[in-house]
Design a protein around this nucleic acid. Structure first.
Lengths: 209, 209, 209, 209
DNA sequence: CATGAATGAGAATTCATTCAT
DNA sequence: CATGAATGAATTCTCATTCAT
């Protein structure tokens, strides 16, 4: 492990970087890339404007780093759930739960993701798109694998995998989106919300005799 | 009807206004409010920069007008479907279909809505937020009414109306979002996609003996 | 006399020109050359913006023409008084009276003069300065002549002519300026004010036994 | 006294502010508020355009600050003379002298005052007018007091105080104005000019046996 | 390293002038 | 001639980035 090479100084530097990133994530999420200003980030992070340039080469770099951090985090989370579960049901339930927790803790991060995905703020995307797409593909391929297995195991109906994934991503995304927009989400309800989403996805809303 | 009183000149003016709005909608949807520039809007609309100010008093005004147009359009569409259908199933199927068509034809408009909803670009929202929220509430109340009826008629299970609406908005929104992002949507598949979404919402993905 | 060559058309044209000038003088006096806009002049004159360009080649030309009109008017007035009076006292009394009347009727014109004299709005002055200076010199030389005569005739003390003129111009100018600024001037008081000014100039304010 | 607390930085900042104000005063006096451009002010002050906005929030703010500085300076000067003199004659002689010196040193400042007083450039005046009027009133009340005393003491004839003040303001203002316009004023002549003005105001120009 | 003053490229907006009708 | 829509040069103001301290 390389982390130990340069100790105090290095750790301090790393800590300050993350302070800046944390400040930036809030500003970016609140205003978007273009409307966010370095003055605001500087103020929020309690550093001088110039100092930030000792840690990042540009506003854009800060943005990119944030996006990639969030994505990696998300990928890691999905992978963990994948390894810890057997059925698609459990996989979706747990992923959803995790997503909800993540969003609750990182509302800004979530908004940023949606923001960036939407092809907005073109300037930033050139190289980043590739990395983002790479991440997404890894995630998608995991879910596809699990979905196909579920079909084979007769856990779910025989449906187009791609579409189910889209619906799954919906579950873990748009629902959350709406919750966040309307600010109804609280820790207490996470478990329940996750179950509701998964239940509907599996059983539908139709009345059954 | 007064619309016909002021003819040529008036109609021409109206036409040019809409030309500008059409150009602006694309730029705004692609870049967001802040990052979009009037130079771009001017170029895309093939007018001089100054000309735009003969039709709109500011960049912000253009933005507002666009958002409100889209919202009204959407509300109208929902209302029509509401009046034309009896069951929740038909209502959702048709709304979804309509949304898909609308999004296919107005990809930019759709992005703009999401963009604006996300509480970004604060400056613009002061008065607009109210109007937007008003629109949303009207739409939501329609869906709630229909949902409650469906529960009473045993068309669907007894579930929390608010949550179903959230899921419904998901169906007609996030799925579309994903389709658009990945640019897989074409006219041919609209009918099919709408049925798929509605089917899953009603029946779930679970395997049934 | 050439005035009669082109009749109706010509007279109409001349009339419209003066309509525009009258509108312009008010706007210019109220806002200054730069801050006045052609839109305002067009609106006040009740012509289309384009029409104005059928009568004047530029905003600047309108301005110049106005200034010169006012100056000529003023010169003419001074000359008339010069010819109608014998003593310096009468000359100053009457000139002051006339100036007061003129200012009362053309508050804007007066402001414009001061404005322009003050070397402001440089752009306009290149050629105009010469004409203005020419006008001033004519006026000054008249007053000097009359002043020297007054000294010779023992009407006034033996004082530097140039300075007296400066003081005289003061009487007819700064006092008026102050009156106008504070808007106390009315027709009723003109005679009285003129007498007051001339009295002080001749007799001073000192108490006499 | 707090002035010494924040040293180097603070003093430097104050110095630069005044550099900008000095540059601005010249441009404004030469061109007026509207016609003066920030590019010119930036060039004259030898700062970048953006730098100016680190010291003032807008062009208008610079203008206001200048006007108020000049007015305060003038008021202070009048008050000092008031306290140092007993007779009206001395008061006027000294005020005139001071005004002449001030104008010689601050030709631009003087022009600006006249400019602003003339009710031009409306936009700027809303709040400022009040402050300016307040200043004027203080000054006027001082002169009125002194004038009334002079009448009581039989230093001067029994004349309308208000009018004398108007004439006094003339002495110290229009004469200067004319001197400045024609650029004849030099230090050597100040004493003499002040005496001349005061002499005429007190004794008049009439020949006496 | 930390800082924030300085900077200028770039954005929104205004307005004199042109020109097609 | 009369008009006002179209235009872009010019202006104010913002902000990412640099750099001297």
């Amino acid at each position: 492990m390389k982390q130990k090479t340069l100790t105090r100084k290095e750790r301090e530097r790393e800590f300050k970087r993350s302070e800046i990133l944390n400040a930036a994530i809030q500003i970016f999420a609140m205003k978007g890339f273009k409307a966010a200003t370095l003055d605001e980030i500087a103020e929020k992070s309690e550093f001088g404007k110039g100092t930030i340039y000792n840690y990042f080469s540009s506003k854009e770099e800060i943005y990119k780093e944030i996006i990639l951090l969030i994505l990696k985090e998300h990928k890691k989370s999905i992978k963990e759930v994948y390894n810890e579960t057997d059925t698609l049901y459990d996989f979706i339930l747990n992923t959803t739960k995790r997503d909800l927790i993540f969003c609750l803790e990182n509302k800004e991060a979530f908004f940023l993701l949606v923001f960036t995905k939407m092809h907005h703020e073109k300037s930033t995307k050139c190289e980043m798109s590739k990395i983002m797409n790479g991440c997404e593909k890894e995630i998608t391929s995991l879910i596809i694998k699990r979905t196909k297995l579920a079909i084979k195991n007769k856990e779910i109906r025989k449906l187009d995998s791609e579409r189910i994934i889209r619906l799954f991503k919906i579950s873990g995304f748009a629902y959350i989106y709406d919750l966040l927009i309307n600010e109804n989400l609280c820790e207490a309800t996470i478990e329940e919300e996750a179950k509701f989403i998964t239940d509907i996805l599996f059983n539908g809303i139709k009345f059954k005799k």
